[in-house]
């Protein structure tokens, strides 16, 4: 996988900001739409690539569900578990689409997580728009 260093850098910056902003965060991963991690901050680095692959599947299935039900573009998929929450958001960009994933433990608050994730997605999308495409 070839990803321009500026894209990695912008993604890593966003990931670090999000990790610090949301209490209870276990992992933040930014990945390509086809499941390659390009930036991450996590308490368990062994999970990074698995989270990236799973999130790309979740985002893709969410997106097709939106298309099939005529509900439009995917914004977010949230999955609640016994002891935590998974938030998957698409970072829209016509050239460099990414997937942002936040994994929270039981201390995490969904509303707080969604607020900060949306801010991060907007910031990252703005950064991507100004950067070269993959492979450039």
């Amino acid at each position: 996988m070839i990803v321009h260093p500026n894209i990695r850098s912008a993604a890593q910056q966003s990931v670090e900001t999000l990790f610090s902003a949301v209490a209870g965060t276990m992992s933040v991963v930014a990945s390509t739409a086809d499941g390659f991690a390009i930036a991450s901050r996590t308490t368990d680095p062994a999970q990074t690539n698995r989270i990236a692959a799973m999130s790309s599947s979740i985002a893709a299935i969410g997106a097709v569900a939106g298309a099939e039900t005529l509900l439009g573009q995917l914004k977010c998929v949230t999955v609640e578990f016994d002891t935590g929450i998974l938030v998957v958001m698409e970072v829209p960009d016509i050239r460099n689409p990414l997937v942002l994933t936040l994994v929270l433990d039981q201390r995490g608050l969904l509303g707080n997580a969604l607020f900060h994730c949306k801010q991060t997605v907007k910031q990252l999308a703005d950064s991507l728009a100004a950067l070269p495409r993959f492979g450039a």
């Binding site: 996988m1 070839i2 990803v3 390509t32 739409a33 086809d34 390659f36 790309s56 599947s57 893709a60 299935i61 997106a63 097709v64 099939e68 689409p97 993959f134 492979g135």
Partner: peptide, 11 residues
Amino acid sequence: MVRTDVPNSDP
């Protein structure tokens, strides 16, 4: 068909 195709970034 239902497809979940995304841009490929694997060279």
